[in-house]
Design a binder for these strands. Sequence first.
DNA 1: CGCGGTAGTTGGGACTACCAACCATGCCGT
DNA 2: ACGGCATGGTTGGTAGTCCCAACTACCGCG
Lengths: 135, 135
Amino acid sequence: MTSDAVVEALVRSSWRVMGVLTRIGAENDLSLTQLRVFGILVDRRLRMTELADYLGLDKSSMSGLVDRAERRGLLARGKNPDDRRAVDVYLTPAGLALMERLLEEGRRALAPATDRLDAKQSAQLVDLLEILLGE
Amino acid sequence: MTSDAVVEALVRSSWRVMGVLTRIGAENDLSLTQLRVFGILVDRRLRMTELADYLGLDKSSMSGLVDRAERRGLLARGKNPDDRRAVDVYLTPAGLALMERLLEEGRRALAPATDRLDAKQSAQLVDLLEILLGE
DNA sequence: CGCGGTAGTTGGGACTACCAACCATGCCGT
DNA sequence: ACGGCATGGTTGGTAGTCCCAACTACCGCG
């Protein structure tokens, strides 16, 4: 069965990627989840629950997560204009700046791997992964 | 720069894969890390420190990890014949059986995604990821 | 033999996630 | 318009993760 090989390759490479992200996060005192939160919020402003859905976490897990990032001035809570119960979360300028640094770091850290592909292969890989991810 | 697109696709798909693994783990009371330990030990018997190296964790993190799995009878500690300080870790038959179930579950869970690729694309993806992972 | 280095454990601390319980607000039917 | 149920978020408690520092046991070399 070829499905096995695909799953195996996917899982293996995913672990590799997570390892890189974990290291980059650790160097900046961010957990994997926080890193992901930042990645999500780069171009969005979301309510707590929406964020929890993105992450696949319980909403109660969000409070502390956001608290800690907020305390560091990287993230802020704001009122939601449409629903007084809801709380919007978004990156502060400092958070955005940090995220941009981390993106660059991520690119650099993965470069040894991604550089092994030529332009055509890169495009192919992106296409295949996008099919995998579905639209 | 096309490197951006590759990194983005890789990170996105890795998160997807991790989500699936997290769910499967949670359904069986296993953390992501434990799941990975099992995956590593399927065809190996390792010392604590070697395992820690595979996982990129501190050796002190291993004790508790192995403890908990051992308490559930999924994993066992054994003496290392060459070094009396060292402790070998390996899957018990129960652990191996569990892991086989989980592998099958993983394949099934990822099938909706992997099925979107035909045989040729699958082979291509595996090739590309293997290049990425290095030899 | 003795001494520095390595294998693993223990203890303490911050963080992560979950669940259940709890306010505040929103929404619906009557 | 109001009573009741649903929804958004927080809090508190628990178990697990992961780190660092300190410690014991053992290895190996001079």
